[in-house]
């Protein structure tokens, strides 16, 4: 009788009947948490403005996503954490100096958020269907629309409440405009330069400066299995090789790969931007090509292009190729190629 009573309530669905505990939102929130060390380093060096800019991006992204989905009458997906993650990444890719009221530039993060979430993500079909990394398109749009405001770099200062920090150039800017000698002069010597770049005590976007903090977050993702090594290693590896071969003054094979790896947006890009699931290939072997493409393009732009930094454009260009790479590196179907043992049997 007990059994008959239960029958009406039995759930019927297709196998499997057990599933892993991993969820999309858990992944998104984990990536957000992994970004915290780098974000906190940014706050430490660039003060409360870093918090304001990032918060503005996060709130804008979440609100725009909610509003858009309400207008098109779709279920809200803000809870999956992807809009918040986009906002966090976008904020960390902006200079803290944007928090300024004369001239007024505090609208830039808001508009960039709109471009990221509504244009780049939702209009392409929402999470999973966007071709380009939303945060990077948001940033690219801002950089092209407000080239001046987006390239005002504050000097890092540990003076926490400093709202009027002095402006300066980024290490890559100095390298591009004035060369390596000047860069060393500014930072004292090579070891001092490395030290500044590793800790994040240098001008740059809020979340990109501290190579160590980014590495901590990146390794967290790697060891938790949220990302694989393929993209970061091929990205950084190919960039290092390019920097070593072509990065020197005059002679080949005389460049300094370390400076290039830990400056600009290289670390943030390799660990957090290029590894975005949706806009990178999902076949591991393909990811190596993708990462290598990012690294090579970054260095071509850095060394030969008009911009001091090339990470953003490199990743966006490679985003276009992600579906194609997946197709080209389609995994081998089990047994599709006859193994040696199978041939032996034939004999």
């Amino acid at each position: 009788m007990e059994a008959t009573k239960k029958e009406h309530q039995l759930l019927v669905s297709v196998s499997p009947h057990v599933k892993s505990e991993e969820t999309t939102s858990r992944i998104m929130w984990s990536v957000s948490i992994a970004l915290l060390p780098a974000f906190l380093a940014g706050v430490y060096f660039f003060g409360p403005r870093a918090v304001f800019i990032t918060a503005l991006c996060i709130i804008s992204c979440a609100v725009f996503e909610k509003l858009y989905l309400k207008i098109v009458d779709k279920q809200s997906t803000v809870g999956d954490g992807s809009a918040v993650l986009t906002g966090l990444l976008l904020g960390m890719n902006m200079p803290a100096s944007l928090w300024s009221f004369s001239p007024f530039t505090a609208h830039v993060p808001v508009i960039a958020s709109f471009i990221a979430v509504v244009i780049t993500k939702q209009l392409f079909g929402g999470l999973g269907f966007n071709v380009f990394n939303p945060a990077l398109i948001g940033r690219a749009f801002a950089l092209i629309s407000w080239p001046k405001a987006m390239t005002i770099w504050n000097e890092p200062t540990a003076a926490f409440m400093a709202m009027d920090a002095k402006t300066t150039a980024t290490p890559l800017g100095i390298l591009k405009e004035e060369g390596v000698a000047k860069l060393l002069e500014v930072f004292g010597d090579k070891m001092s330069l490395y030290q500044h770049l590793l800790t994040g005590n240098r001008a740059g976007s809020i979340g990109e400066t501290s190579a160590i903090a980014i590495l901590i977050g990146g390794l967290f993702l790697l060891f938790r299995g949220y990302i694989s090594w393929h993209i970061p290693v091929s990205f950084l590896g190919s960039a290092a090789v390019m920097a070593w071969i072509f990065g020197g003054k005059g002679a080949l094979f005389s460049g300094d790969p370390i400076v290039h790896l830990i400056s600009g947006g290289m670390m943030l890009g390799a660990w957090f931007m290029a590894t975005d699931y949706v806009t990178s290939p999902s076949v591991r072997r393909g990811q190596i090509l993708f990462g290598a493409g990012c690294g090579v393009l970054t260095m071509i732009i850095r060394l030969k292009g008009g911009f001091p930094e090339g990470v953003m454009f490199a990743i966006l260009i490679m985003n276009c190729f992600a579906p194609l790479i997946d197709r080209g590196f389609r995994s081998k179907v089990f047994g599709a190629v006859k193994t040696a043992t199978a041939k032996e049997i034939k004999k």
Binding site: S13, V14, D80, Y277, R284, V333
Partner: peptide, 22 residues
């Protein structure tokens, strides 16, 4: 069954497919 989302192309299924499919 109704609680599912879009594919985010994370590649986990490709990694584990014993038949080497996508």
């Amino acid at each position: 069954a109704e609680e599912f989302g879009p594919c985010i192309r994370c590649g986990r299924c490709i990694d584990i497919c014993a038949m080497g499919l996508m």
